[in-house]
Simulated assay, not measured.
Amino acid sequence: MLLAAGSAPRRLRLLVLGGTAWLGGEIVSAALARGHEVTCLARGSSGAVPAGARFVRADRGTAGAYDPVVAGGQRWDAVVDLGRDASHVRDAVSVLEPAGASSVFVSSVSVYADTATPGADESAALVDGDESDYGGSKVAAERAVVGAFGRERSLIVRAGLIGGPGDHTGRTGWWPLRFARAAAATEPDPVLVLDVPGLDVQPIDVRDLASWVVASVERGLSGTIDAVGDRQSLADHLTAARRVAGHTGEVVPVDEAWLEAHGVNPWAGPWSLPLWVPVATHAGFGARSGGAGRAAGLVPRPVDETLRDALAWERSRPGPAGPHGAGLEPDDERDLLAAARRRR
Rank of each mutant, 00 (worst) to 15 (best):
L311H: 02
G147E: 06
T39R: 00
H247Y: 15
G119S: 12
H237T: 10
D205Q: 00
E152C: 12
S94A: 15
P330Q: 05
T224G: 05
S103M: 13
D91G: 15
V95H: 07
P176Q: 07
W22G: 04
A261P: 09
R288G: 00
L192G: 08
R341I: 01
G293A: 14
T172Q: 07
V157M: 03
D195E: 15
L23R: 08
D331C: 02
G198E: 04
V213H: 01
L307W: 00
S233Y: 02
P50G: 05
A183S: 11
L15T: 06
A321Y: 05
R308S: 14
A21C: 11
G150A: 09
L298M: 05
G170N: 00
V252Y: 12
G73I: 10
A159C: 15
R153W: 02
A140L: 11
R171Y: 05
A124M: 14
G198L: 04
S211H: 10
P203L: 04
P270C: 07
E333W: 12
D208G: 08
G64D: 08
W212C: 09
L234M: 14
D59M: 10
F55D: 01
Y134G: 08
G229E: 02
G72M: 04
D85Q: 13
R143S: 11
H324M: 12
R13T: 15
G198T: 14
S7V: 09
G47L: 04
R43Y: 11
V196E: 14
A53H: 08
R231W: 04
G25L: 12
D226P: 08
G25V: 15
V127R: 14
L23Y: 07
A92E: 05
P176E: 07
E329S: 10
V228Y: 10
V16G: 00
G64C: 06
H262G: 11
G64N: 04
V196T: 15
E152F: 11
E122V: 08
S94K: 14
D91W: 08
R344P: 08
V127A: 00
H168W: 13
L177M: 14
R34L: 06
V80A: 04
E97T: 15
A182W: 04
A51T: 14
V145R: 10
V277K: 14
M1N: 13
V157I: 14
V111E: 00
G166A: 10
Q202I: 02
R231F: 07
G164Q: 03
D130P: 07
A340H: 06
G19S: 05
V56Q: 10
S316L: 12
P9Y: 03
V111G: 01
V252D: 09
D236M: 09
L238D: 02
D77Y: 11
G297N: 09
H247M: 02
V95I: 14
E250Q: 13
A63G: 03
A310F: 00
S110V: 00
R181L: 13
L275W: 00
A4M: 10
A30W: 00
G164E: 02
E26V: 10
